[in-house]
């Protein structure tokens, strides 16, 4: 049996909000360590890897491994009915045909209970080896989101160029072009505002702006985003959860 209680529904609300526009159907794999998801978008360009470790829950138990096949839009409809500050408990039997979601407000005078039918989802599972990256950028997630939104107004592609101590986001469109350069920066008082660039080799990669604009829907989850890049390899965009992560592997564009 699975029983996982979040102190606040807001965490799962943000996670589902971040994923629902990229993937329609997901298997949520529940083990004693927590809940994990691997899902690939329909165009097979973006891979999402979610891990909500047991430590992200107030209480968590899962006696046997359970797979919950969930339709994200339906899950989102139910999740939106709960308040962000409600406690949220996920409950499923060992061979479940439904996931129960129980929202309790903190004064415990209101309990809302929902049941979501499960689906049999046949999905590929890709093996992600330990990847080697040539550049790692840690930066404020809100700043990364603004850059992705701004650059998408010009072109459907966004070029990321990293040299020693700066990252250049470059967009070349039909009616014009634009770029934003950010440099390494340490804010000792507000560390979440800092930009850190770790570089082994210079990077020049191009990505679909549409996918980057899906990834930035994770911005409310974490104040910083970590971007890991390697030439002609998928980029990794990572948002840390209190205990776990939401990762996006995005295939680049390049010439054959």
């Amino acid at each position: 049996m699975l029983e996982g209680k979040f102190d606040e529904a807001s965490l799962l609300k943000k996670v589902i909000d971040a994923m629902k526009d990229s993937v329609k159907l997901c298997n949520f794999n529940c083990t004693e360590n927590g809940i994990s998801v691997q899902a690939i978008d329909d165009s097979r360009v973006l891979l999402i890897s979610l891990l909500i470790e047991a430590g992200s829950f107030e209480d968590y138990r899962c006696d046997r491994n359970i797979v919950l096949g969930l339709e994200m839009e339906s899950l989102n409809k139910i999740i939106k009915n709960g308040n962000a500050s409600d406690m949220l408990t996920l409950v499923a039997e060992d061979s479940p045909d439904a996931l129960n979601l129980i929202f309790e407000d903190k004064r415990r005078d209101r309990i809302a209970e929902y049941s979501l039918k499960l689906m049999d989802i046949d999905q590929d599972f890709l093996k992600i080896e330990d990847m080697k990256f040539d550049a790692v950028v840690n930066m404020p997630s809100a700043e990364f989101a603004k850059i992705c939104r701004d650059m998408k107004t010009l072109s459907e592609s966004l070029q990321i160029i990293i040299t020693k101590d700066s990252v250049k986001f470059n967009s070349e469109g039909d009616f014009g072009s634009g770029s934003v350069v950010i440099k390494s920066f340490t804010d000792l008082e507000k560390t979440e505002e800092s930009v850190r660039i770790t570089l082994e080799k210079p990077i020049n990669l191009t990505f679909g702006a549409k996918y980057l604009n899906d990834i930035i829907k994770s911005t409310p989850l974490a104040s910083q985003v970590t971007i890991k890049l390697c030439d002609k390899q998928p980029a990794l965009f990572e948002y840390q959860l209190p205990s776990g992560y939401l990762r996006f592997y995005l295939a680049p564009k390049f010439e054959d």
Partner: peptide
């Protein structure tokens, strides 16, 4: 011209 690659090109199925 640049071509969008598929994520499946980079990771093997298990």
């Amino acid at each position: 011209t640049l071509k969008q690659k598929s994520i499946s090109n980079f990771f093997a199925k298990t």
